[in-house]
């Protein structure tokens, strides 16, 4: 189980990070459009399609990565008060009720949707450039499969937690988070990140629970 969890964490992170670089493609592509539109009076016919294709691919492929790092929003103000074992038991049940059905639907219906698009090699209607979008529709299936693999890992995590009473946290790959900062104060500004904001804030809240209850 442990090996599988590590495998899934790494797989999700690999895909999430690889596709994350689309943000640079997106910024440069859309930036280029602005330059040629104003600089050379020659707008491109592909920048608009590029922008949503990169955006959509990026966030879909990042879904499993975000899940593995506990980054999806949860309303956890009661959840946080429970012992890890209780949390794990509840989560184990909820994964089967509220995770796998949706993700399976995503894979199966997404397949149907993408397969048809491949059949006629669908291109975007937004411009005469004929930017292909069948590969973009396939992202739905790919994202679903990644989520499924990661979901199984999360179930294993819950089982391990029920046994040991402690959650197994994914290796943190972005070192510079607010929490890290809190731990190693004195790091100069500009060296850290805000994105893990939420989960870190939550971690912090955990640390100061005693004080909160006072």
């Amino acid at each position: 189980m442990l090996a599988y969890i590590q495998f899934a964490d790494r797989l999700s992170a690999w895909f999430g990070k690889a596709f994350a670089w689309l943000i640079l493609v997106m910024a440069i592509g859309v930036g280029y459009e602005v330059v040629v539109r104003y600089g050379f009076n020659a707008p491109t016919s592909w920048a608009f399609d590029l922008s949503y294709i990169t955006y959509g691919t990026l966030f879909m492929m990042g879904g499993a990565y975000t899940l593995s790092r506990g980054g999806h929003v949860r309303g956890d103000f009661i959840y946080r008060l429970w012992k890890p074992r209780t949390q794990a038991k509840v989560e184990l049940v909820l994964y089967f009720l509220f995770f796998f059905p949706g993700v399976l639907a995503l894979i199966i219906s997404g397949w149907k949707y993408a397969e048809r698009s491949w059949r006629y090699m669908e291109v975007s209607v937004n411009s005469p450039a004929g930017i292909p979008i069948f590969q973009f529709k396939t992202v739905i299936v790919a994202a679903g499969i990644l989520l499924f693999i990661q979901g199984v890992a999360q179930v294993f995590r819950a089982i391990l937690c029920i046994r040991s009473g402690e959650w197994l946290i994914a290796d943190e790959d972005i070192e510079e988070t607010e929490v890290q900062l809190a731990k190693q104060k004195g790091v100069g500004p500009g060296n850290f990140a805000a994105g893990t904001a939420r989960e870190d804030g939550r971690g912090l809240k955990e640390e100061y629970k005693d004080e909160l209850e006072r």
Binding site: A42, P43, S45, F48, V125, N126, S127, P128
Partner: peptide, 10 residues
């Protein structure tokens, strides 16, 4: 209209 020298947006 692209053929006619316009840049076209849809």
């Amino acid at each position: 209209l692209q053929k006619m020298g316009m840049s076209v947006a849809q």
